[in-house]
């Protein structure tokens, strides 16, 4: 099938137009078929931001900057940009310019407002956050930092000068201390030299003592080992005894506690005074009875006549 020239040309132009539009939209970070969501942000300093730089939310690319210009009315930097319409850019959202101007990678970061807030309308204004660009911050702080550094260096210089003076002055404490230390060291050296023989003999004595000890331990090794084993056994028995003693102690404790609490007969005996009172009254009764018996034994022994029978 042969196409006419008109069809060939028309088809070519249409395909090229479609590729052009879609390509430009793609490279502009625009959604290929959706509409866009345009917003404006206001800054004091653009920090090198230009059209085409990316816009990110939490580090995700969601759109790009369209245009950066100075507002004639306020003199501030206005940044027109567009983002994915599905991003919830709510009230409270603010924008910061981040990145490193010197490397040419400047971008705009959006920090979204609360998710349940009302969405900012198309073309709405977004506040600038307090981010600032790293380089300008550094530049702003550089004079202070330099002052700090130079004062530190000045102080260091002073300290070094003082140290130098101290070291060079012949009558300074430092010098005297050093001289005294040197004297002590010399004395110690002299002592070592004069007492060399004695020190040597002490060392050799210690040597021989250690050797003797070693030898005796080597000879009587078995005996020592047996002794230690016996001692171990004894200790083990003692341990057992102690354990048993402890058990007994615990039981005794329990018993005493019961007694104190008035549990059981013994407890009652100790703690309950009613028995004493009853015994007291009984004893006094008995006393009376015995007195009566002594005075009138016949009354009690009347029935003992049977004894007489024998």
């Amino acid at each position: 099938m042969k196409f006419s020239n008109e069809i060939k040309v028309g088809l070519t132009i249409i395909v090229a137009t479609v590729i052009f539009i879609l390509g430009v939209r793609y490279f502009e970070d625009l959604p290929l078929f959706d509409s866009t969501y345009d917003l404006v942000a206001e800054f004091d300093n653009a920090g090198g931001l230009i059209g085409g730089n990316i816009v990110r939310v939490n580090g995700v690319v969601v759109g790009s900057v369209e245009d950066v210009y100075i507002s004639e009315a306020t003199g501030k930097v206005m940044v027109e940009f567009h983002v994915d319409p599905n991003i919830p850019v709510t009230e409270g959202t603010y924008a910061t310019i981040t990145g490193f101007d010197a490397l040419g990678v400047v971008r705009m970061d959006l920090v979204l407002g609360p998710a349940d807030g009302p969405k900012i309308p198309e073309g709405g204004m977004i506040a600038a956050g307090t981010g600032g660009d790293l380089m300008s911050d550094l530049t702003a702080q550089a004079p202070e930092m330099l002052e700090d550094v130079s004062s530190v260096v000045d102080q260091l210089n002073g300290v070094l000068a003082e140290t130098n003076a101290m070291l060079s002055a012949p009558d300074s404490d430092f010098r005297q201390t050093l001289t005294a230390a040197r004297g002590s060291v010399e004395q110690i050296e002299g002592l070592l030299a004069s007492e060399r023989d004695r020190i040597a003999s002490i060392l050799s004595n210690t040597d021989s003592l250690t050797a003797d000890l070693n030898a005796s331990l080597g000879e009587d090794g078995e005996a020592v080992a047996a002794l230690i084993a016996q001692m171990e056994e004894t200790m083990a028995t003692l341990n057992e005894d102690l354990e048993r003693f402890q058990e007994t102690n615990e039981q005794l404790n329990e018993l005493l506690q019961k007694l104190n609490n008035g549990e059981g007969t013994l407890g009652l005996l100790i703690n309950d005074s009613s028995m004493y009172h009853r015994m007291d009254s009984t004893l006094s009764g008995l006393n009376g009875l015995i007195a009566d018996f002594q005075s009138n034994p016949g009354r009690y022994l009347k029935e003992m006549k049977i004894v007489d029978l024998f």
Partner: peptide, 17 residues
């Protein structure tokens, strides 16, 4: 593509055309 999109200027293709 990330690099291309980051430094894309909308005027470039118009200038090319």
């Amino acid at each position: 593509l990330v690099g291309a999109r980051e430094f894309f200027q909308p005027f470039d293709p118009i200038f090319g055309v």
